[in-house]
């Protein structure tokens, strides 16, 4: 196996770009919740019905927010 081939084997393969890191820590107006039944993403504003727009399921999961946390690598 050539050197360059070996180098890229362990690198990221996903062609889809990742969303940039948020520059502010302000909470967004629309939060994307995940349906507990079908897994669809649901953009829900505050005051809106808590209900999946795809299947009507009433349990939604809140994904982890994009916020920095410091850890010691120990």
């Amino acid at each position: 196996m050539s050197e360059s081939q070996q180098d890229t084997r362990w690198q990221s393969q996903n062609p889809n770009p990742m969303a940039p890191r948020p520059s502010t820590f302000k909470a967004p107006d629309v939060l994307n919740y995940l349906c507990a039944d079908c897994g669809a993403e649901n953009g829900i504003k505050s005051g809106e019905n808590i209900r999946c727009k795809e299947c009507g399921h009433r349990v939604l999961y809140k994904p982890r927010t994009y916020r920095i946390v410091q850890f010691e690598a120990r």
Binding site: R64, I68, F71, E72
Partner: peptide, 8 residues
């Protein structure tokens, strides 16, 4: 690696 800042 000593410090890790986890964004997500």
């Amino acid at each position: 690696i000593e410090d890790v800042y986890v964004w997500n």
